[in-house]
Nucleic acid binder design. Structure first.
Lengths: 349, 349
DNA sequence: GCATTGTATGTTAGCGATAACATGAGGAAG
DNA sequence: CTTCCTCATGTTATCGCTAACATACAATGC
């Protein structure tokens, strides 16, 4: 109760600078700067004096000033489509873990699945001079692409296999994965297989999955495509529910539905419950992404599991190497890392 | 094919600066600076010359240098527990929308429900000098609190009703909301009501919900608390499944289970399906948060709906006013905004 | 025709940190 | 007891931009 020292007037006026700390500790600003970093040679008692001064003033380093001088901003930008998707959350976690202890911080932006929004975010991020940038997908506006190409920093595209990569890629072919899922259904004996997805190509990974379905229809000699497009991607559970109803109305003989994601698959499954349609007897249902929900629900949903965490972690490791390479003037060659996925058969098919 | 001009040597060496643009456009750097901002008086043809020079060089403004000079960093920090939770995602969306068009960008960090991680993030964010900061919850480490108090920027605590707010608050009482849910069950005739939650108080909102349950047990004169603690918060669907099994083993006479979140409620519901236990006949189940899943699944889950988007949007508006207030030297008084919630009765109770 | 205003632009001086280059005091080596 | 080296610290000069003030020139008013 008696030791709280108060500085009513000076406290609020301006944040203390390194010079204030230096004056209080009786050293130069440079010494403070050194003391605040690790591994610099500072006498123990000087370090202690500085620590005390920092605490007393409540000093927090101004990194924007530091970056200007040192040319290192200490952050990596990552753009993901949505902050409410466990797949991308896992990727973000992998990235964070890879960056742990390197002094680099991850700053997230979300694009809402809109490439124009991505462009805005890319530019906003680049203005802050990230040391590297991770984007989701391989589809960008021309300007986004140009910005990324000329940013002079490592760029990693994830979750996709772009035909013309900008630099590095850590991903997989959504089309191939979708093909594999349809093949799995085919092998189980299903022939009248439909696809449920969104109405536009806004979600480019969703569009690729549809393409994989269509390729499979062709290659496996299935009669014809049965595609229900419903809702703006990413489509919701509710839209999955409505889509399955439409599907069954339109093609009553349908035997199986492959959904663009687990969420819509779940919606479809619950709608079947509600209407007393047995899954998989009346209609089989498969999803994509191996969200927690598809393993927990009843019946559990067949899906494609992707190693999302790995995408983030490998992207992180890759960009760390790339940043280091740029720093020592030995740029690393562009890499494309393939991430594995597998069809996870469950009760719904 | 013939117009791609290339500058092999000069391009990569160093990012162009404003001075490079100025030289190319034949004006001073200050004029470029003005032209790149809006609403500054610049002759149309000068502006055009500058635009061309910017495009030619692929110039991107260096905001860290600009911030240093102008004392405005143009971003707001928001810390949320998880990037894979639709409640917080909605809040983030509300924030983003409120900031739209103000020139402020939202930078997200996630704490993983760990206050120590929050502390690390708060300091990392403050080093970048955000113009305001939004945190989730009212529980922080002492150092976090100190950092926030002395940061000299508007601070908004959300999703909670802290006893001792730092500055502004936009939230609600999780405890009261949980109480209301139990009361609703009571009114429906349930008497042997249990609570399913995580094992620690890591998720402070979860802990508050449990406190609300216990308060209700007392106040409504229910026989005694039946609490199943299982898993580290935030508990998963699967943990909800296991918890309901334990609950029924431990108190076979239980009539209803209130779960700490919709996810665990859903897990519990699916486990009941699997075991042939009728919901709500054998046991009623309620969740919290009104996630999409609880409205879609069958039977749909009774829950508490919170206006998450509003939390973000109101927090955003509040901090905009606060930032403006600080700028003109007329700090706004600290506000506490109550966000509404309501019990949403569905098929599961 | 001259003072007055306004518009477009230029000049100068930092913002707060750090890189790079001093410097000074001890200690080891000869 | 020099010489040389090392360690701890200080000094100076930026980093790239913008605030604040200065200036030039044209249009306006009397």
């Amino acid at each position: 109760m008696d030791k709280r020292d108060k500085k009513p007037e000076q406290q609020r006026l301006a944040a203390p600078t390194m010079l204030d700390v230096a004056n209080l500790a009786g050293v130069s600003a440079m010494t403070v700067s050194r003391a605040l970093r690790d591994g610099e040679s500072i006498a123990p008692d000087t370090r202690e004096k500085i620590r005390k001064a920092v605490n007393k003033l409540g000093y927090v380093l101004d990194q924007s000033a530091g970056s200007l001088s040192s040319k290192r901003t200490g952050f990596v930008a990552a753009l993901i489509p949505s902050i409410n998707n466990s797949n991308f959350a896992d990727t973000a976690r992998g990235l964070t873990d890879a960056l742990e202890g390197t002094g680099l911080q991850l700053l997230l932006g979300y694009t809402d699945y809109v490439t124009e929004q991505e462009e805005v975010l890319i530019e906003a991020m680049l203005r802050r001079r990230p040391e590297a940038i991770v984007v989701t997908g391989g589809t960008h506006t021309p300007r986004s692409r140009k910005l990324l190409e000329s940013a002079g920093i490592p760029v990693v595209e994830t979750w996709d296999m772009p035909k013309k990569p900008i630099q590095h890629v850590v991903g997989f072919s959504n089309s191939d994965a979708s093909f594999a899922l349809v093949k799995h259904m085919f092998d189980k004996g299903y022939r009248k297989i439909a696809f449920i997805g969104g109405t536009t190509n806004r979600d480019t990974r969703g569009a690729d999955r549809r393409a994989g379905y269509e390729a499979a229809v062709q290659k496996l000699g299935l009669r014809h495509s049965r595609i229900i497009s419903f809702g703006t991607p990413p489509i919701t559970m509710k839209q999955g529910s409505e889509a399955i109803v439409r599907l069954i109305e339109q093609w009553p003989d349908v035997e199986a539905a492959v959904c663009v994601s687990d969420l819509s698959a779940f919606g479809a499954l619950m709608e079947c419950h509600r209407r007393g349609l047995k899954v998989p007897k009346r209609v089989a249902i498969a999803g994509f992404g191996d969200f927690e929900i598809s393993g927990t629900c009843h019946p559990a949903i067949t899906t494609v599991g992707v190693n999302c965490y790995d995408i983030g972690q490998k992207a992180g490791e890759l960009l760390l190497r790339a940043i280091e390479g740029e720093r020592i003037g030995k740029p690393v060659p562009h890499e494309t890392l393939l991430i594995d996925y597998q069809v996870i058969p469950r009760e719904s098919t």
